[in-house]
């Protein structure tokens, strides 16, 4: 990459590099009376992995569709790769890769054919597309399935094919909407590994997820989005530092009234959250909390001490858990 840019600079005038690949200001999207996105500001820089974390229905997919230049914004401003999606949709889309939430594969065609015909939409020659297709099948480890019908693939394999397809035009910005939703743990880890490699190679990643572990694994920076607005922004570590304690002690008591028990625990930590099935005590030292609870003579049915996660940040900021 480095050598290539030096060469280009020496060769003559080049386009000014767009360092902000996505710039949204007060971006809005309405469907009739429903306001799905209610004024968000986001800047995605070249080379980073940027995440939208939020529950289902938070406005993540609507935002992705606007950035992918397939759905017009209802208000605010949006620049993608320095261009206006409303006016230059095809030019923007030719440099994007999109991995949608539904796989949208052509079930009448084979695995390899899906890549071949898709590459042609970008104006690539047949030879180029064939070369890319084989390369990408290797990358997502689907080479031995090249001739299979898409219908015969498992969910994880279909997902990998969709990721491969989204890379056929060697995109500068790869948009992934819920990349691992519905996959088993093994399939998720394989996909994460591939996405991590892409990032290493310099591809900018923009992904939505409602899994906090996915956001922590993949994202350099993320926004937490809820009901169409951004409630926090930063790196996963920064967000946890800013909005949660270092550790959490999760306590399950054999009672219906967790709130009643929680009232007696407030002095043990910085903050106490009550969920339907457990109480969370946020503190620097979770083990100390667990010991103190035991000394108070309260017998928890189960006790778990863990580090704070983005899930806790989300709970803190919205009062709800991500799974709701």
């Amino acid at each position: 990459m480095g050598a290539q840019s030096v060469e280009q600079a020496a060769a003559g005038p080049v386009e000014a590099p767009v360092e902000a690949l996505v710039e949204a200001r007060n971006l809005r999207k309405s469907y009739g009376a429903l306001e799905a996105v209610r004024g968000i500001d986001v800047t995605v820089r070249r080379g980073e992995a940027f995440g939208f974390l939020g529950p289902n229905g938070a406005g993540k997919s609507s935002t992705m569709r606007m950035i992918a230049a397939v759905s017009p914004a209802s208000g605010g401003s949006l620049r993608v790769l320095g261009m206006d999606p409303g006016a230059e949709g095809p030019a923007i889309r030719s440099r994007l890769g999109v991995c949608p939430q539904d796989n949208t594969l052509d079930s009448e065609l084979t695995v390899r054919e899906n890549l071949l015909v898709y590459g042609r939409f970008f104006g690539l020659s047949r030879a180029e597309v064939a070369r890319r297709a084989d390369e990408l099948l290797r990358f997502v480890q689907l080479t031995d399935k090249a001739g299979s019908r898409v219908d015969d693939l498992s969910g994880g394999l279909k997902r990998r094919l969709t990721v491969a397809r989204s890379l056929i035009n060697n995109p500068e910005l790869l948009i992934l909407d819920e990349p691992t939703t519905g996959l088993d743990p093994q399939a998720r880890h394989l996909l994460w590994d591939r996405l991590f490699r892409l990032k290493q190679q310099g591809t900018t990643l923009l992904l939505t997820t409602h899994y906090m572990d996915e956001a922590e694994q993949l994202c350099d920076r993320l926004v937490i989005i809820d009901e169409g607005v951004i409630v926090a922004e930063g790196s996963p570590a920064q967000l946890i530092r800013d909005h949660s304690s270092r550790e959490v002690c999760e306590l399950r008591f054999g009672v219906d009234d967790h709130a009643g028990v929680a009232a007696r625990l407030h002095h043990l930590g910085e903050r106490v959250e009550v969920l339907p099935d457990r109480v969370l005590v946020y503190a620097e030292d979770g083990e100390a909390v667990a010991a103190a609870v035991h000394e108070m003579g309260l017998s928890a049915r189960s006790t778990l001490v863990r580090r704070s996660t983005l899930e806790d940040v989300f709970l803190r900021l919205t009062g709800r858990s991500l799974a709701d």
Binding site: A91, S94, F121, F122
Partner: peptide, 9 residues
């Protein structure tokens, strides 16, 4: 939907 994610209109 897959097709409109490409330059196609």
């Amino acid at each position: 939907h897959a097709m409109i994610a490409t330059p196609l209109r």
